[in-house]
Design a protein around this nucleic acid. Structure first.
Length: 464
RNA sequence: UCCUCAGUAGCUCAACGGCAGAGCGACCGGCUGUUAACCGGUAGGUUGCAGGUUCGAAUCCUGCCUGGGGAGCCA
């Protein structure tokens, strides 16, 4: 009696046909009748459950099996029978069913529909549901696909630091990292906290981006990427924001904004293809129960070029769109969510790169265009989710960078090493940040970031 | 942080100033192939918390807490 997984059985049912096998898993549903019953068992290795058929004539302890409850862990042994005419391709005729771990009748995950909100409160049990089984398997596959994509292209994977002392980037509110006692922190003469006696001898925080470090490596390895956790202490209360999320940040040297967009587009297309191939069962499930048009939309994307327009063009198109906006469309102001949705969902109906934003609404490190008013920035906007990628060509000209830093009130002494990158063999380079969870939302159709993170951390919420 | 909606049985909701209900789930029973089965029955409640108005509050008012959605910030 070989221990097998449902994944193994699904991969080669013919081979296992009529052989005795043992599977271990958790009961999703148990229906008994007078002299036989059916257990739907999920062993975690496959989205689908396997049906265990048990009969009174073969099991002296039939009533005990019939009484096994949803959520219980069991071990079932029996002959694998191919059932091509039934809804499931095969099932197990049980010769033995052993209870490994009981589950009382107050088990919260019952065979019925549950709301996402409720399941968030039982995040320790929700991985045992169809939706979260699919989401987290796809999450794992997507992470792998990202590494595969970049590794195949020869990119170096950089572990950028999680704890950092630079807060010069202005990408958001920071989580402080300290070993000082909050009640008895040492103070300086002017009454502020004296960080020189803190663990690192200076003020430190959790990273909001690995970009600046990625630039260092890009100017040594040419093509690099980071993929790690990122922390923002923003008081954001939306379905698209979390305090802890994962980000992918490629950085490429000897490259400009167009190379950057080419890379982003190739990557998105690669990831979609990968999931459509490697997670067919899960993608079908999302398409059927989460977002009806998902697969068609993704397949369209694979087959068509992304739109690429300048910010200035976008403003023009929006003005001519004939749609009433709550916030007026005006050159110089950032695009509002409603504007982005109009572009992706109404005008283009596909992902759109918007480039050349006004300098004042973007970051200091972005390369200033010849018009002096705009920078070589690019955002990739997708329907529903909105911005999933933000990137730019970096300012490689020392004088211009210094001027920008002054303009944005950034202390260049803190970023002395960043300046030296320009001084020693500086070259044009570019990169972008991809929100891993936002990509996951886009690819699964799941509308809330809290449902694609195993244990989400959001404002006033850090359970599990 | 702002705006908005909601909180009633394990879950999803109804009752909207006058006896707290349904569906699903659970439990018990029935059913010879079920597919989140089907049929019959049983149990299950401090109506988020604190105060107020009223003869009477799940229902109206105030505050707080929690959750959803929208906006901003962004990925």
């Amino acid at each position: 009696m070989d221990k097998v997984t449902v994944r193994q059985l699904a991969a080669d049912a013919e081979y296992f046909a009529d052989k005795e096998v043992t599977v271990n898993g958790w009961i999703r549903n148990n229906r008994d009748q007078k002299s036989f019953g059916f257990i739907a068992l999920n062993d975690g290795t496959h989205f689908n459950t396997i049906q265990i058929v048990y009969e009174k004539d073969f099991l002296p302890y039939y009533e005990q099996v019939a009484a096994m409850r949803v959520g219980s862990a069991i071990s079932a042994t029996g002959k694998l029978v191919l059932t091509p005419e039934a809804r499931q391709p095969f099932e197990i005729k049980a010769s033995e069913v052993r209870l490994e771990g009981d589950s009382p009748s107050d088990y919260p995950i019952q065979p019925k529909r549950h709301s996402r909100e409720f399941l968030r409160e039982v995040a320790h049990l929700r991985p045992r549901t169809n939706l979260f089984n699919a989401v987290f398997r796809v999450r794992s596959l997507l992470a792998f696909a990202i590494h595969k994509f970049f590794q195949e292209k020869g990119f170096i994977y950089l572990h950028s630091p999680i704890i950092t002392a630079n807060d010069a980037e202005g990408a958001g509110e920071l989580f402080r990292v300290t070993t000082l006692d909050p009640k008895e922190s040492p103070l300086t003469d002017n009454g502020s906290v004296d960080y020189s006696s803190d663990f690192f001898g200076k003020k430190t925080n959790l990273t909001v981006s690995g970009q600046l470090e990625a630039e260092i490596f890009a100017l040594a390895f040419k093509d690099v990427y980071t993929f790690g956790p990122t922390f923002r202490a923003e008081n954001s209360n939306t379905p698209r924001h979390a305090a802890e999320f994962w980000m992918i940040e490629p950085e490429i040297a000897f490259a400009d904004l167009n190379d950057n967009m080419d890379l982003a587009e190739e990557m998105v297309r690669y990831l979609i293809n990968y999931l459509l191939e490697e997670a067919e069962t899960e993608m079908d499930f999302f398409n059927q129960f989460v977002d009806k048009g998902l697969k068609e939309r993704l397949q369209n994307i694979v087959g068509s070029e992304f739109a690429r327009i300048s910010y200035t063009e976008a403003i023009g198109k929006l003005k001519k769109a004939g749609q009433k906006f709550e916030y007026p469309v005006e050159w110089g102001k950032d695009l509002q969510t409603e504007h982005e949705r109009c572009l992706t969902e109404k005008i283009y109906k596909k992902p759109v790169f918007v480039t050349g934003y006004p300098r004042d609404i973007k970051a200091f490190y972005m390369r200033v265009n010849d018009d002096q008013k705009t920078v070589a920035a690019m955002d990739l906007l997708v329907p529903v989710v909105g911005e999933i990628i933000g990137g730019s060509q970096r300012e490689e000209r020392t004088e211009v960078l210094e001027e920008s830093m002054a303009h944005f009130n950034i202390n260049r002494d803190d970023l002395w090493w960043y300046m030296e990158l320009r001084k020693y063999g500086g070259v044009k380079h570019a990169g972008f940040g991809l929100g891993f969870e936002r990509m996951l939302m886009y690819l699964t159709g799941v509308g809330n970031i809290r449902d694609v993170i195993p244990f989400p951390r959001t404002v006033s919420s850090c359970e599990f």
